[in-house]
């Protein structure tokens, strides 16, 4: 199989590392070679963060190059725009439709771009949803990323049951039920 390239981008603290762990465990369970690359340290303090997941028969480099991502998962709109050029021409962009102002915007030194989703939809296949809102309805705002994984899972090569199994194995035992609910909600979205 040709190597598949997945990227997860967001704001430090949003849980991109948990998401990549679930993806990594999933691809491993499916028997693929996998490489994951992530950001630790200073950027995790509210900075722009990016995680790469690559899987296939034989993966060399651990990062996804510009113009090569099959799926780009963005936990925030501005971050979707920042990394959109990493997508392949026929790549899928999944966006958590929320706005988090970076400090230059908050202090008035820069403007938050308007119509991000509309503009990106002209170039890429975009699926957007306010997963945070949905997660709050489920009772825990933090599981928004599992909803997004659900949305992405439907566009990937693995069996639904296997995903659920991996989520059960990866998240904290106390949060298994709500994470499985969140995943199912995402998977059944669109």
């Amino acid at each position: 199989m040709e190597t598949k390239n997945i990227m997860i981008v967001g704001v430090g603290g949003q849980g991109t590392l948990l998401t990549s762990r679930i993806l990594g465990n999933m691809t491993r369970k499916a028997g693929y070679d996998v490489k994951i690359s992530e950001v630790h340290g200073m950027a995790q303090r509210g900075g722009s963060v990016v995680t790469y997941v690559r899987y296939g028969d034989n993966v060399a480099e651990p990062i996804v190059e510009e113009g090569c991502a099959d799926v780009l998962i963005a936990f925030e709109r501005l971050e979707a725009l920042r990394y959109a050029h990493f997508l392949k021409k026929d790549g899928v962009l999944i966006v958590n439709d929320v706005r988090m102002d970076p400090m230059p915007v908050a202090i008035g030194a820069a403007k938050y771009p308007e119509n991000i989703i509309e503009d990106l939809s002209k170039k890429y296949k975009v699926i957007s949803l306010d997963a945070k809102e949905e997660a709050i309805k489920l009772g825990n705002a933090r599981v928004f990323n599992t909803i997004i994984i659900g949305v992405a899972a439907k566009r990937m090569d693995f069996d639904r049951d296997m995903w659920v199994e991996v989520i059960k194995e990866t998240v904290k035992p106390k949060t298994v039920d709500i994470n499985v609910k969140a995943f199912n909600l995402g998977f059944d979205f669109m």
Binding site: M42, G47, E66, R82, H85, P102, P104, A110, P113
Partner: peptide, 18 residues
């Protein structure tokens, strides 16, 4: 010559105190 979309010109998101 790589056929890559140019990166969008967007505000930076530097790390900040939590």
């Amino acid at each position: 010559e790589l056929d890559i979309e140019p990166a969008a010109d967007v505000p930076a998101r530097p790390p900040i105190l939590c």
